[in-house]
Design a protein around this nucleic acid. Structure first.
Lengths: 202, 202, 202, 202
DNA sequence: GATGAATGAGCATTCATTCAT
DNA sequence: CATGAATGAATGCTCATTCAT
């Protein structure tokens, strides 16, 4: 009964495909990326990829989902530890900066889907955006319950924080700033956001 | 000597091509967009487009430049009038929101180039980003000279403002917020940015 | 010693494959038919089919042979009973009409092979055609010996009878005639054929 | 104004494609035939074929139509001349035999469509079959008006004649008979058909 | 200059077949 | 024996680009 081993091998292959797909899609974009090349780089035959994913689009979408899960996990881990809102916001910037650096392909392929023109891909990326915002909203609510701040529109505030953090990291990278230069902005950004919210609610 | 008329006709055709290109590229992205269709919609033969642009990539790049000029002009017009920094930052958000609404195609095709995976397109879009930042830096310096604020790193501050404004507008649109809902955030964003900078430097 | 049972099971599986193959090939033709689907519908794994048939072509050829045997048996049964040549020719038309109706898949897959462009399949189908003709020739010779008719070229006469009977049934079906309408022609066709031969040799 | 020449060149190219298509389809059948090869043999680029025909299927259908027109013209020409019904029926066999010999590709690709399993192709081929039958029905009616014969069901009679002539030619060719051997049967077949109808109606 | 017919590189996808289990 | 995961050859079709008119 080689089921367990099989399942493991299968999952490993699947992950290898997703990884190579992220690499190719990040390098060339959806249309220019070559499925056959992805298969080759994943060390499998070109027909095999279709045993794991229905077609090129499905592979792309599932790759987006995979990225989403991974990045969200990183984010949650970064914000799990308690602390002041200032500290947590700083950690948010650092988390985004690290993600963008360490898993650059995934970060960029996700952002390009979110802001690209393909509606289907944008819809999928937007799902993850909602999750990001939920994570941010969650720490805002914790701070609010702790009497740290007083917020009227949690949703919009979360979106402003998202712009000030993830979008900032993205723009900074596009402009060629290093991770170090970006992380150095963490405290300033946290400060900016905090005062934008209206600290010391009490 | 029909030179002047010819030149005018030629320029008009060029503009028509650029307009239709923006529409198609915004609708389908670079790869999926069809050059022949753009030519047809511009009312010219499909060979003619190559008398105006070297190839599809060149057309895309020049379209980006054209968008850049137009949007930069809007931005400068919006910030030309004097006022407090708070007012000017509010106008910045409003300007981006209006651009995203009224010239939606251009706005999105530009943003998708800036954050997309194609290096050549990103490089071109980045040029415009530098110009945006220069405009923002300019009003910051004016405010600084007026003693309104005190800034250490103008460049990074401008980038933070960019994230808090244009990227915010972009994200908000992706999430489906209306122009009204977005513009309503103008004053809050301006306030957030101002306090992030550290107003009342003195 | 489960030999006998095994052999029975094996033969049953083989027949099931042939039946499903006939169905699929009749539905889609050789190229469009899907081996994996045939295996699935026969209730076996897709690798198993290759334990029974060398490849897709061999399966098709053997299916043709299987059809041939079955149809030839029907034909012989229909003509076994004695009678006048007129009666037997009528029974011939009826036999073809019934075959085309009751085992429509087999009838059409055979005819399409006989008249199709694939030389290998046509060669196989032609073998059966020779057998059909032999059956027809046999009853002609019996009638001849009985002094009923006088024939010069038995082979060509048999072929003319084949055209007037099986090909007639095929064409009529293609045109949408019902079995009833076709069988109603049996006596006329028999009559036509008989007078074509030159009855009452004596 | 090179319109006329252009139209001629265009039509010539179209005919060349149709001719090569008939050759390839006759050689390999629809599925196995290679569009790129047809283009190559027609002396054009592989993209060019799609300027003349929407896709492979459309090319096949139009090829069938083209064959139909051509063969029907041959048939009508063969039967245009007046004569006794016996003479005309003999000419019918000869016409089919000549078509099958001289334009063998067309003849077989048409017959394989008529009797093949592809419904779309069969439907198209059936249209031509109706025309064949109409031509046969026409000479029957002429003979009837001339008091030569008396027929009850013209439609079915025409179909019986079709089987006895075209299908006979087809079967004979499949069996390897030469054109000479086939044409030698013309008078016998005409005789068979005539007596089947019931000559000397009076 | 303007045109559009012609071109062919390029690629996603299918499916008969193999073979390790 | 039976299986089905893996394979890769094979191909219809699109569309940016060229160039004769």
């Amino acid at each position: 009964m080689p089921k367990i081993v099989d399942a493991q091998i299968r999952e490993a292959t699947r992950q290898r495909i997703l990884r190579e797909a992220a690499r190719e899609f990040a390098r060339l974009g959806f249309d220019q990326a070559n499925i056959n090349l992805i298969a080759e780089q994943a060390g499998i035959g070109k027909g095999t990829i279709y045993l794991y994913f229905e077609n090129k689009r499905a592979l792309f979408i599932e790759m987006l989902r995979s990225i989403a899960q991974s990045q969200l996990a990183s984010l949650r881990a970064a914000l799990a530890e308690k602390g002041t809102l200032q500290q947590r916001l700083e950690r948010l910037v650092l988390a985004f900066a690290r993600m963008a650096e360490e898993d650059s392909d995934s970060f960029h392929v996700y952002m390009s889907s979110l802001y690209g023109v393909n509606r289907a891909f944008q819809a999928e990326a937007t799902k993850q955006l909602h999750e990001y915002l939920a994570v941010i909203a969650h720490i805002l609510e914790e701070s609010q319950q702790a009497g740290e701040i007083q917020i009227e529109d949690v949703e919009m505030t979360a979106l402003r924080i998202f712009s000030a953090t993830e979008s900032f990291v993205l723009s900074a990278r596009v402009l060629g700033y290093t991770e170090q230069e970006i992380t150095r902005q963490a405290s300033v950004i946290a400060h900016q956001v905090l005062h934008g919210i209206g600290v010391h609610a009490g």
